[in-house]
Amino acid sequence: MRKRRLVTRAVLAAVTAAVLGASGCDAVGGTSPAPTGTGGRGARPSPKPAPVWDRAPASVAAVGDSITTGFDACAVLSDCPEVSWATGTRAAVDSLAVRLLGRAKATEHSWNLAVTGARIGDVPGQMARVVTHRPQLVAVMAGANDACRRSVDAMTPVAEFRESFEEALRTLRRSLPKSQVYVASVPNLMRLWEQGRLNPTARQVWDLGICPSMLGDAESLTAAANQRRATVQGRVEAYNKVLKDVCAKDRRCRFDGGAVYGYQFSQAQLSQWDFFHPSVDGQARLAEIAYRTVTN
């Protein structure tokens, strides 16, 4: 009897081993075959996809208007690109390019294609010149000149503003689909009027023709003057909505969220010659906003 029981146990053990081997029961579970060799030590994790937005681009180009050329920041009626918020090399500004690349590399790997007096309709042409440099980041600031016209009727229509900005991005994307774009909001022109309207020197300069749609007849508080300024301000806000909406459709574009528009420039941060363009200190503030937007 004892011998029979031993034989029975041996048969059951053999059958059990055969069943377990056939079913492949293991740490993986289910009916999957047991891993062998190095695969048995655990599957390798999939590599993380590269982020769409690179916080450390290796080259920078800038397009836009007189704010980006540093106009009236160093001398009257003169561009001063060395203090540009986007690509300037002067230490007092610590431009976006310098912050991202370092001063030595910024000299070789940044380009300023902005033109004093440019409006949004000029930006597609500037973009066409940008692509020859193949920058990894393009900084855009345009729109103030579209609102600063001889009259409210002469301001760029919102639909036309949108069309031009979309064309600028298409121009870039046709050649550089992976370049990133930083878009600054249009500054608050009403705030500039509020800062300088009680300054006799500022009013005299403005009367020479600086942003007449907003700054002309700066002392007047009549209903008509107030309505004129409100109309300009509304157009600036509409431009900023366009910049935000169009940029949001491009996964490699970042709008500043209205940071430039919301920044309250002091008189010390405005040009001592025209009380409109940023001074060197004002340019530095724009650089801070841009760097924060690009790197966050």
Rank of each mutant, 00 (worst) to 15 (best):
T87P: 00
H109R: 11
R90E: 07
S110Q: 05
D94R: 04
T116W: 12
T116Y: 14
H109D: 10
L113D: 04
A91C: 08
A118Q: 02
K105Q: 14
K105C: 14
V93I: 06
G88D: 09
G117Q: 05
A104Y: 11
L100C: 04
A92Y: 15
L113N: 06
T116A: 15
V123A: 00
V98L: 11
D122W: 13
S110M: 10
T107D: 08
S84V: 12
I120T: 07
V115Q: 04
A106N: 07
T107L: 11
G121N: 05
V123M: 00
A104K: 14
W85P: 00
R103K: 14
V98G: 05
H109M: 12
V98P: 11
T107C: 15
A86H: 00
T116P: 06
L101T: 09
V98T: 09
H109P: 06
V98I: 09
A106Y: 12
L100A: 04
S110L: 05
I120D: 00
S95N: 03
W85F: 06
S84N: 12
G88S: 09
S110F: 13
R119A: 08
A97D: 07
T89G: 13
T107I: 09
V115P: 01
A92I: 08
A104V: 10
N112F: 08
V93Y: 03
A97N: 04
N112T: 10
I120E: 00
R103G: 11
S95D: 01
V115K: 01
S84Y: 14
A106P: 00
L96C: 08
R119Y: 09
A92M: 12
R90F: 10
A106W: 08
A114M: 07
A92V: 15
R119M: 09
W111Y: 15
A104E: 13
A106R: 02
L100H: 01
A92Q: 10
T87K: 00
W111T: 07
W111P: 02
V93N: 01
A114L: 05
V123K: 00
G121Q: 03
N112I: 05
I120M: 04
A97E: 10
L100E: 04
G121L: 03
L96D: 06
K105V: 15
R103H: 13
A114I: 06
L113W: 13
A114N: 01
R103I: 11
N112Q: 04
V98K: 04
G102P: 09
A91M: 12
G88L: 11
W85L: 09
L101W: 13
D122I: 09
